[in-house]
């Protein structure tokens, strides 16, 4: 757990409106939300830890397990779907040998589906960490994965 979580939480002492910003900061720091983080938040914010967990599990952004080194997101918005998003996901799942929501065995990649990145005009879209790749095709995706494997 992040060591300076107290700094993040302190401004929101006793206020539940800090739950989401603090969760976001914790996830930014650790990559996921741990039970320790939730318990620490509960003490300072004055909200039950179960309530906080209930809030965290509601939002797709939050993860509860340590993710892989890199996060691969396949956009499955309407434009991407209509342009072959489902097939793209299929190919990537096979290539990485991990289903959406899982992490590859070597812990390098976590694969996720995302509802819409808002780059619909360049569908289908793939995002790795903060890099957005547009106009993807199954072929291009395979090539790209190969490149990432070399670098990662």
């Amino acid at each position: 757990m992040a060591t300076d979580i107290s700094q993040i939480i302190e401004p929101y002492r006793g206020q539940r409106k800090g739950i989401i910003p603090v969760l976001q900061a914790v996830q930014e720091e650790d990559g996921y939300i741990s039970i320790e983080a939730v318990k620490a938040m509960s003490k300072v914010l004055g909200v039950s830890e179960n309530d906080i967990y209930g809030v965290a599990t509601f939002y797709s952004q939050f993860k509860f397990e340590k993710p892989g080194d890199h996060i691969v997101r396949v956009c499955l918005g309407t434009a991407c779907h209509v342009r072959g998003g489902a097939e793209l996901l299929d190919v990537i799942e096979r290539d990485l040998d991990a289903k959406a929501g899982e992490t590859t065995e070597d812990g390098k990649f976590t694969l996720e589906r995302v509802a819409c990145m808002g780059c619909c005009a360049v569908a289908p879209v793939l995002v790795v960490d903060d890099e957005i790749y547009g106009k993807m095709s199954p072929g291009k995706a395979k090539e790209q994965i190969k490149k990432w494997r070399e670098v990662a």
């Binding site: 539940r16 952004q61 939050f62």
Partner: peptide, 19 residues
């Protein structure tokens, strides 16, 4: 934080309130 339903007004406000 990743919830389409928060585009709905009352859900949006709940989200700001930390719920």
């Amino acid at each position: 934080a990743g919830a389409f339903v928060c585009g709905e007004e009352t859900a949006l406000m709940a989200s700001i309130e930390g719920k």
